[in-house]
């Protein structure tokens, strides 16, 4: 192959590959600008060549990017940028204007030194369009987040499930042993739930559970951790809340749940809950003991006629 042909072939390849290629000299003057760069930037070689890169593209992060170039000139080594840390260098449009949903083309770049007689005389930048891979990665992250969220939720009521509730209660308990900031736990049980199921059927029972969860959830403070503990039993962790305040919330819950009957088709179902309330004390050594305390109080609430909140006996 002749040198002329070799040159022509290189030009053909550089201009037609679907990656960006450009070259700057030590003064950041652009000395090569391939067709990909031309098409994506809307700037022709005539517009860009022999001009300072940062003058043509003032939106580039100059301080940082010139340091990057300098590192290649000085160390004679490649440098890299990744979309994962810096989504893009140039504000280029991507190929998914309709289905994309992200602002600019995601880019990975490699900065390579041109070494002549032991000195770096120019830096060649190869710019890869990685929008597609980035979007798959974004989608995967979103799917993982959704999956992780749904693994914490109770399918029927949408509140936290028992596993997550216990994890959070255990965390709150550990936190309390360090900080000493007391907190309270409510155990909430639907009254006569078995009868409701027997009388109206399980679909109505489900609706009652959902409605109760929604009425309770509405009046809880934003810091509360609310979950379904078992069949018709819910639990609420109330951070930084003392027994008196927790009792008040417990009473509000009773009132809110029983305020009006649940309408299910033609049936009107009267519902109420009993609430057991317990607070951390020095006698409580594990979080399970706190549950036991609140459960004991719940038992008292049931035996005293239901539809009420009762606080646990001090131990």
């Amino acid at each position: 192959m002749t040198t002329r042909m070799e040159g022509a072939l290189s030009d053909l390849i550089v201009d037609n590959m679907s990656v960006g290629v450009f070259v700057v000299d030590p003064q950041f003057k652009v000395i090569r600008w391939n067709r990909f760069m031309q098409n994506r930037s809307g700037r022709s070689p005539a517009d860009v060549l022999n001009r300072n890169l940062f003058e043509v593209f003032p939106e580039l992060p100059r301080a940082w990017l010139s340091k990057k170039f300098e590192s290649v000139f000085l160390l004679k080594n490649s440098a890299f940028t990744s979309w994962q840390n810096r989504p893009y260098l140039f504000q280029f449009q991507h190929d998914r204007p309709i289905t994309g949903g992200i602002d600019y083309m995601r880019q990975d770049c490699t900065f390579m030194p041109l070494i002549e007689n032991g000195e770096v005389t120019a830096v060649c930048v190869i710019l890869f369009d990685v929008t597609q891979a980035a979007m798959i990665s974004y989608e995967r992250e979103a799917a993982l987040a959704a999956l992780s969220e749904s693994s914490r939720r109770d399918g029927l009521t949408g509140v936290f499930n028992r596993h997550h509730l216990e994890v959070r209660l255990s965390e709150a308990f550990t936190q309390w042993t360090r900080s000493g900031s007391d907190f309270s736990l409510l155990m909430i049980d639907l009254d006569h739930f078995k009868q409701i199921n027997d009388e109206f059927g399980h679909l109505v029972g489900d609706a009652v559970l959902r409605m109760s969860a929604s009425r309770i959830g509405e009046l809880l403070p934003p810091t509360a951790i609310f979950g379904r503990y078992g069949g018709e039993e819910f639990a609420v962790v109330l951070p930084s809340t003392l027994l008196d305040e927790a009792m008040e919330i417990g009473q509000q819950i009773c009132q809110a749940v029983t305020r009006e009957p649940v309408q299910c088709g033609d049936s009107q179902v009267k519902i109420s809950v009993s609430v057991g309330v317990a607070q951390t004390t020095s006698a409580i050594k594990q979080y399970e003991m706190l549950i036991k305390q609140a459960d004991g109080a719940l038992y008292l609430a049931k035996s005293r006629g239901r539809n009420r909140a009762v606080s646990s006996l001090p131990i």
């Binding site: 590192s71 994962q84 840390n85 810096r86």
Partner: peptide
């Protein structure tokens, strides 16, 4: 968080590149 990562990755690239080359 992303630029923190970038600092770490960039500096690592400099160290690795310079030393090994």
């Amino acid at each position: 968080a992303a630029s923190e990562q970038e600092v770490l990755i960039d500096l690592s690239n400099l160290i690795t590149g310079a030393c090994l080359s």
